[in-house]
């Protein structure tokens, strides 16, 4: 599907789209059946019995983007200014020709209204081919502070 360089370029592109609030283009990266997950209070919780920070399928993702574009999601009005570094990109051995499992880390500076937050974590993407395009089937974000108080996580991570 993609070689290591191609995977890196895909992740960098996703990072730029999130940093620049290019919501619609970011949404286009996702597969028709998708799952976006940010666990809460731990890294490997059972989502049937435990709350997550984000646990969304494709319709949930579309709602999120629609809210962000509505002009009335005040927690992102004005939007945070974002810059993230994506690194440690690693192709998992469980990858197959049809689906790449990719690990990476990120370090994000988020500035809004005189406050600079640092957000960091590990990410696992599962990338698939859909209509000849690479798409995100699942994305799991393990934040280092997922069990601590987080003030505002309404931008994309």
């Amino acid at each position: 599907m993609l070689d290591h360089h191609g995977v890196e370029q895909f992740l960098y592109r996703e990072a730029r789209l999130m940093d620049t609030h290019a919501y619609d283009t970011w949404l286009e990266l996702w597969a028709r059946t998708a799952h976006y997950w940010i666990p809460c209070n731990g890294d490997d919780i059972d989502v049937t019995r435990h709350v997550s920070l984000v646990n969304e399928d494709r319709p949930g993702l579309e709602d999120r983007v629609q809210r962000l574009k509505s002009g009335a999601h005040y927690a992102q009005d004005p939007p945070s200014r974002l810059s993230r570094v994506v690194s440690n990109v690693e192709l998992d051995q469980d990858s197959s020709p049809d689906a790449l499992v990719v690990h990476s880390t990120f370090n994000l500076s988020a500035h809004r209204r005189r406050r600079l937050d640092v957000v960091a974590g590990r990410v696992t993407h599962r990338l698939v081919l859909e209509d000849g395009q690479v798409r995100i089937a699942t994305k799991k974000v393990v934040l280092v502070d997922n069990d601590d108080t987080i003030m505002n996580l309404t931008y994309l991570v």
Partner: peptide, 13 residues
């Protein structure tokens, strides 16, 4: 839980 997550929490809407 899913309904809760969509509205509440630091990433909720």
């Amino acid at each position: 839980l899913r309904r809760h997550e969509s509205f509440y929490g630091p990433a909720g809407g």
